[in-house]
Design a protein around this nucleic acid. Structure first.
Lengths: 186, 186
DNA sequence: CAGGACATGTAACAGGTTACATGATTAT
DNA sequence: ATAATCATGTAACCTGTTACATGTCCTG
């Protein structure tokens, strides 16, 4: 049930509608826990039933009404409870690894092209994360989070995780591309 | 439906029962696509119905009968079709990132302990992968896959992906631990 | 004699994905 | 006109997880 808690974290930082949450997920907490608007609406309803969040209907002119959600006392309790509890270490699930493992059973050149495509995709994500880092944490050039503390520090460290993960994917793709190319020419 | 194709790849390498496949997944292809025996049995049945695999009942003395599965002509066709098709780039889903983001809303020291626990877990996985590398690819010390080709090369590269991913997790945990510790003492 | 490996499964549930539905406003 | 953004949702389906069920053989 980690989506519940990811939403609670985001809503604690500031209240918002399901739609707004979906967009926040697209550009921050979703790097570690992606979710679509359908999932978010479903979980908001469930958490409303459980009393972890409350919502206020807000009329807007020119735009549809929205339901602005807030975390209740019970929700804050649930969040602190969950924060003290262990979570499963992340597991990787990458179809590209499966393809690579089967490359010699099909068109190895097509698999190589696919690796190149993934390389480009991961490089794009990496650039997005680095852009966020430059925008939100300009004081931290390469090494240091020395000047940060509390929530800001934690946000920075999460972003660093995203950067590291994408760097690692890109480097792996490069290794694979190089090895497969020199295999073909030798 | 990538579990289907992960199983097809593994079964093409050699035939086996559901139980055997489950154990193979635990120590090779499962690093990129984990699966439990329940999932594997379900998919084997589905692929049997679709005609992608066939099975033979094999009686064993002292042990339960087993169903040894093989990839059919149709299954090989499906596999080559899938190999030429794009797959989604991997997405990370790590509850630890969510926790870290929320650390200041609860017990930050408990979150730090959790990061240390994950660090140990990822370090253990890394050692497992390095052990496999030493055992199966002793000729490739640090830099090179120069001497490998075909299926062996691809298996090596997949393993390298696992090693890189775990190295990256460990390094991230170390960065987080260091930053959170120096935050507390300052 | 207890526990683990071997071997196959069912059932229920939780979580994630895809498709569809509606409808207004704003920008091109 | 057309597409994008804002805003909320339902329904069907697929995938993954957890718990349970059964029974043998081998090892300590």
């Amino acid at each position: 049930m980690a989506l519940d808690h990811a939403i609670l974290v985001s809503l604690t930082e500031r209240a918002g509608s399901g739609y707004e949450l979906a967009r926040r997920f697209d550009r921050s907490i979703g790097y570690f826990w992606p979710a679509t608007h359908q999932q978010i609406y479903r979980v908001l309803r469930r958490m409303g039933d459980a009393g972890w969040v409350t919502h206020t209907d807000v009329a807007q002119d020119g735009r549809p009404d929205k339901k602005v959600y807030e975390v209740s006392e019970a929700g804050r309790g649930e969040l602190t409870r969950w924060l003290a509890e262990p979570v499963e270490p992340a597991i990787l699930r990458d179809g590209l690894g499966v393809k690579l493992r089967g490359a010699s059973l099909g068109d190895a050149v097509a698999v190589l092209r696919e690796v190149e495509r993934h390389r480009a995709e991961h490089a794009t994500r990496l650039e997005v994360y680095r852009g966020i880092q430059r925008r939100d944490f300009p004081q931290c050039d390469v090494p240091g989070a020395d000047k940060l503390a509390g929530r800001e520090l934690h946000q920075y460290l999460v972003l660093r995780g995203g950067v590291r993960a994408e760097e690692s994917f890109v480097a792996w793709c490069d290794e694979v591309i190089q090895a497969m190319r020199s295999e073909r020419t030798s």
